[in-house]
C-alpha cells in the first residue's frame, strides 16, 4: 500500500500510527488526541503539508518510507 497526497490525514494515522513521528516533525504534535483526530479528518496529506508550509511531495515520501520500514 502506498500513501498518496489525496489520502485523508486521519486515514494515514489510523492505518499507520508509526507515521506520527513524521507528522510530529512537520508540526502536528498532538495527533493522538481526539480533537486532532477529528481535525485530521478534515484535511488530505497535501493540505496537511500546506498547513505547516511543508513540501507535500517530501511529506508523502517520508510517510511511505516509514510504512515500508525503510526509515
Amino acid at each position: 500500500m502506498i500513501i498518496t497526497e489525496g489520502w485523508q490525514l486521519e486515514k494515514v494515522v489510523d492505518l499507520f500510527p508509526e507515521t506520527l513521528g513524521v507528522l510530529y516533525a512537520i508540526g502536528f504534535t498532538d495527533l493522538e488526541t481526539p480533537v486532532m483526530r477529528h481535525a485530521a479528518k478534515l484535511v488530505t496529506v497535501r493540505e496537511a503539508a500546506g498547513l505547516m508550509g511543508a513540501d507535500s511531495s517530501r511529506l508523502v515520501e517520508d510517510l511511505n518510507r516509514v510504512i515500508q520500514g525503510n526509515d
Partner: peptide, 11 residues
C-alpha cells in the same frame, strides 16, 4: 477554508 492559507508558508 484552506484557501485562506498560503501553503508555501503555512501563514
Amino acid at each position: 477554508w484552506l484557501e485562506a492559507i498560503d501553503t508555501t508558508t503555512g501563514a
